[in-house]
Amino acid sequence: MTEDLIIAGFGGQGVMSMGQMLAYAGLSEDKNVLWMPAYGPETRGGFANCTVIVSDEEIGSPVVSHPKAVIVLNLPSLDKFEDAVVPGGVLVVNTSLVNREPKRTDIDIVHVPASDIANEIGSSRAANMVALGAFLAHKPIISIEAVKNTLKKVFAAKPQVIPLNEKALDRGAEAARVQAAV
């Protein structure tokens, strides 16, 4: 089974680190993983996206034009990637910064006010982890536990940020579950 997703937002939202976290977590579950940044002359505030592939098989193309999932953290990212999601796929939308409804009706849409939740628990910088939690609750390609274990390793030198990130994952997951139950 191969799962691929694109994560997009503006530079500074933690798009790249969120993708790397997912790849690290996949590696800890002995999966084949690949993380690829869209690299360009971009800066903080500019456009940022990365591709993550998690698979039980050998990973082929690092270039994914129609991913099974897309996580968008801002409106330009929704405009750019909404059409790319494969039919039947998942689109996670950070509704705090996206003021329109997605048009697609052939995919699962997960609404999560990621930036609002992040602010509520202490820092807007955790919005990426809220969105990741929401995605993984909807589609557990990797367990949230594996991501939490990865957080502990990646932030070994900055342990004070671990609880916030863990909380962000849980709150995102909770938001997705509440939505699914409605």
Binding site: Q20, A23, L27, N32, V33, L34, W35, M36, P37, Y39, I59, P62, V63
Partner: peptide, 10 residues
């Protein structure tokens, strides 16, 4: 190529 230089794998 640039992609192989930029991407991460185990």
């Amino acid at each position: 190529d640039g992609v192989l230089g930029q991407m991460m794998e185990p």
